[in-house]
Design a protein around this nucleic acid. Sequence first.
DNA 1: TGATACAATAAAAGCGTTTACAGAGAAGTC
DNA 2: GACTTCTCTGTAAACGCTTTTATTGTATCA
Lengths: 360, 360
Amino acid sequence: MVATIFDVARHAGVSIGTVSRVTNNRDRVHPETRERVLCAIRELNYRPNPVARGLAGQQTNTLGLVIPQVNDPFYFQIVRGVEDAASDAGYNLLIASQPQQPGEHTYLSFFHRGHVDAMVLVAIDVRADEVQAITDRGLPIILVQQDVGANIPSILVDNYYGARAMTEHLLEHGYRRLGYIAGTDYTPDNRERLRGVRDALVDHGLALPADHIARGNYLRDSGFRAMQELLALDPTPEAIFAANDQMAADAIMAAQAAGLSVPDDIAVVGFDDGPVASYTNPPLTTVSQPVYELGWQAARLALDISRADRDTAAVAPRLVQLPTKLVVRQSCGCSPSALDQTSRRSTWTGNLAERRPPTR
Amino acid sequence: MVATIFDVARHAGVSIGTVSRVTNNRDRVHPETRERVLCAIRELNYRPNPVARGLAGQQTNTLGLVIPQVNDPFYFQIVRGVEDAASDAGYNLLIASQPQQPGEHTYLSFFHRGHVDAMVLVAIDVRADEVQAITDRGLPIILVQQDVGANIPSILVDNYYGARAMTEHLLEHGYRRLGYIAGTDYTPDNRERLRGVRDALVDHGLALPADHIARGNYLRDSGFRAMQELLALDPTPEAIFAANDQMAADAIMAAQAAGLSVPDDIAVVGFDDGPVASYTNPPLTTVSQPVYELGWQAARLALDISRADRDTAAVAPRLVQLPTKLVVRQSCGCSPSALDQTSRRSTWTGNLAERRPPTR
DNA sequence: TGATACAATAAAAGCGTTTACAGAGAAGTC
DNA sequence: GACTTCTCTGTAAACGCTTTTATTGTATCA
């Protein structure tokens, strides 16, 4: 039904080895023979079967990606970055979501050696020895937004510095009593952000009391409740730092529902500079992260290592940290209130839009 | 380095055929032998190589997904749905983005038969004969948000009815002069939505003049400019219907930038009920779509057809249309102004959150 | 002219599975 | 006791490629 390499060989009057040499541009083939083979390929509409290729060549040209099972546009950006890097390198992308029960790690069997050539794990809570066991078998793994040490390569955003810069910004503008809306406490980015806030406060001789940290989970609505807790404090905090934009947006709504004006009565800032950030009212002061680049670089790194394994053993970085950037809009009350239209919009879609022509 | 079926066979003192029968639960194997094989598998940490399996079994257990190369959280929801359905069925998910140049269709070679067992195309502009050529070779294809007829199975949302219901809602509440902010005109959903608006107006003896349709592209900022065009009309429209939430949010900003109050001076409504919808001010009246289900059902359908091919030839639906729902919030000025907290929030994350435990 | 090198190609050996087929016993039937 | 049936397992042939090795033919050189 579908043409195989044998059909092409017969049709062109050559052996299958020659056809393979043509399709792979491997060894020298007589120009005339090559032309005949190419012609047969066109005529039969032949495509080498990638599965057979993977089996024979011990290389699948496929990159594995594991992402948490959460509906956050944030991760979509990472996926896009990974996808672009993979397809630019001629690789396919195989996606799996983190298993339901954390600790089950079905993707370990999903993506065993032979299935994919390399693997990118995004914000997945793994132990170093689990990862090591896989890399030992020859499957390179890159961790994104996660660092377990032990020579496992990681790529992440400088959460610590971002949180610290934001906190210092608030302190510089006179805010003293800060409240913090935390994300889920088992994610490393949350820990780093909290550490950044704490350190900045300590440097200014201030502290973050335990009751000024409200626990959220990064998702819709969790910021609303957390904010209500913080507003119940006496005296209430002057500024609220939420661990992501989603919760910051919730916090703004909670403040407004309580009859407070943002930023006049209370400042609210976020982290991510995601799509939500430009649609809050007032526009959200936040920390932007190069999310797309995070995915892009992770994929590049993974593929580089995969190829280095078979070529020379170049030294790959153990850790890559991408910069974060403070984005001051209106919700912190620190910027001139006259809005200029460009700065008040999030740049979230910027990167991608420049790379790829819009379609939908 | 990595154990193969031969290693297991030797270790357990059986033939590879028996090992294969054990790993596939295929034929009957003596309980005692099975136990010995299982033990060897555990001991050697053996996993059948999926590539070899794919080649021998003529089935890859992989579902191919092609999505437009655009940074829209909307598509992420579809991907999640597809991913869940695939992984529930024990399938892997291979993702490709639409090629840069529309019409190039590199994914056709990406996903040729033998690579994936079935394919889901989301909002991709293909011709019926292109798709037919692939399905003829035995690769089932499901189209999402796209219908090319010609017996190619499609699954989409009832865009026509959604737009029509929204328009009728506006008309019922006394709005007469409507403006429409269109999406890219080559996408079928945009055409259907426009048709719904037109038909509803015609039924009420009204029309939609050409200058009351402003062209956007579904993306950030395009709604802003489109709204400015519509506001320049004299008399200005009383209500603006944008083809998606993103542009509706832009339109609200444009109106406010022009000193108009929404909905008091002008009503603005959208389509999608995506994450943006709950963060506009005022909260956006819009049409909600079961996006996650769209992906989920598409994947199920694709896999069903794929398996039907090898079993009995059950009749698969040619077209599946999922319902849309009008979601009335404040931006149309039709709801009681007292906000109740539950109805003003988007339900966007609802479906998924119930299915899967939040992680990040 | 015979030895040598080189280019081009054919032939064959994997790659790690599944599966059709065959064969060996054990068990059941008359 | 001979024949059939059934259960279990081994053997070997695919699956569609890549890659190594071998072979053939032709040009080069002393």
